[in-house]
């Protein structure tokens, strides 16, 4: 008799649980997929396409769909770490197949060589190049993400990617990198300075 009771009790329990779950599934459904938004926030928005996707947002979508998180050279290890943190995945080293981490750069047009073809303007993902047909173009340095997508299309090869110069206001206290200036001075004997421990 006890086992009949057991069967009945368990089935009733299961039935009720099933009903509740059926109700909850419809009542508390969550819409949307905000994770893509969060991933996109972490990506550097260089829009360089080195990850193999046309822009940061498509890559964010791809990561949310399960792609690797180590395909973003401009973001570098810091971005990988933060993505790993967000997604609870393992932080891997940057995938060398997609390029290496580099210093921040900015595109500069050698203006005397520019022929005004507008090819770079069309290539710039963030509209950071201004100019018109047959007019000289120039890069708005503050808006340039350093993606270097404009370099290749230029028919006259007049765009250089130059490292961002360090300014005192944005100096990061790297004492090892203080330039030793060889200032010609009769009183001073020039010698290579020995760097103290930073």
């Amino acid at each position: 008799m006890s086992w009949v009771l057991g069967i009945i009790a368990l089935s009733v329990l299961a039935l009720v649980a099933g009903l509740i779950l059926g109700f909850a599934a419809i009542r508390f459904r969550v819409e949307g997929d905000p994770i893509v938004e969060q991933i996109d926030q972490i990506l550097p928005q260089t829009q360089c396409g080195q990850c193999g996707y046309p822009g940061c947002r498509p890559y964010a979508q791809a990561i949310a769909d399960g792609d690797e998180i180590n395909k973003c050279p401009p973001g570098g290890q810091a971005t990988i770490d933060r993505l790993a943190d967000l997604l609870g995945r393992e932080a891997k080293p940057l995938d060398a197949a997609h390029g290496a981490e580099d210093v921040k750069k900015v595109a500069v047009i050698r203006e005397d060589e520019c022929i005004g073809c507008t090819k770079c303007i069309q290539a710039c993902p963030v509209d950071a190049i201004i100019g018109a047909t047959r007019q000289m173009h120039t890069v708005i340095a503050d808006e340039c993400t350093g993606c270097d997508l404009c370099v290749e299309p230029c028919p006259v090869d007049c765009i250089d990617m130059l490292p961002l110069p360090t300014k005192p206001e944005r100096w990061t206290w790297n004492l090892e990198q203080i330039p030793v200036q060889n200032i010609t001075d009769a009183a001073a004997t020039t010698e290579t300075s020995e760097r103290g421990p930073a």
Binding site: W173, L175, T190, T192, R195, G196, P197
Partner: peptide, 8 residues
């Protein structure tokens, strides 16, 4: 003349 660099 160059001098020794150190942090405070």
């Amino acid at each position: 003349m160059s001098f020794f660099i150190a942090s405070s």
